[in-house]
Design a protein around this nucleic acid. Structure first.
Lengths: 112, 112
DNA sequence: ACACGACTTGCACAGTTCTTCAAGTCATGT
DNA sequence: ACATGACTTGAAGAACTGTGCAAGTCGTGT
């Protein structure tokens, strides 16, 4: 049952490898959100949101609790904020180095 | 004309979401390596290694140069090291919370 | 010019992940 | 007890990713 570390890391990053899941984590790292609040911010089917939340729950990155008829999610590991920040840093470095990728990346950027 | 940032982030993390690519980045963040050196450390087919290197090249996370008959790779963004460290931190947090995966995480965790 | 080692690329097959629809659960208000 | 709003789950097909083999390129030494 020995899962090598690099394997665990890969799984971990894979969990972050989806736009909706990134959005969720960013919103949750600001403050806790009920599912319907997330739904209002992220343009996606309820069932799809639920699927992505399930992925994040499975990897223990978020936890949910019931609160007066709603389900409220929160990040279980506060360091997630640091990680997203580190990613932002690297990303801006890469973008700056490439200089001109921004234009190609714009389709559908209206949303955010 | 801004990139949907969460989309770019997701792509970025997706790039990290593969055991071989994690290994590669860890090795390269120690020092530059020629392909055949990577091959000696990572147990995969040459063509598979090459494919994964291509993925990392495409996302500008590594660069390659030819050097006396060999191809040498290096990380192009030094902050990658920080990112891997941040991931390690979160991972150990999650693991500690879950309790019993720790043993598996020790092989080679001395350095990384 | 030729062979060889060091890599990379193309490709087909297999496995994995996403998306959506339909159905199901659960707690609250009437 | 029933309806409703708030979510979750199951499942099927589409889309994407990874793997290994065969073939190809590139540079160096003979």
């Amino acid at each position: 049952m020995s899962i090598p570390l690099y394997q665990a890391k890969a799984e971990f990053f894979k969990t972050l490898g989806h736009p909706a899941r990134i959005r969720i984590l960013e919103l949750l790292s600001e403050r806790d959100h009920a599912v319907h609040e997330l739904l209002a911010e992220i343009a996606i089917e309820p069932s799809s949101l639920s699927q992505q939340l399930a992925v994040l729950r499975r990897t223990s990155m978020v936890v949910s609790r019931r609160d007066s008829g709603q389900v409220v999610y929160s990040v279980s590991v506060p360091e997630v904020r640091d990680l997203l920040a580190a990613a932002r840093l690297i990303l801006s470095g890469i973008v700056a180095a490439q200089g001109d990728l921004e234009d190609e990346l714009s389709p559908m950027s209206a949303v955010h």
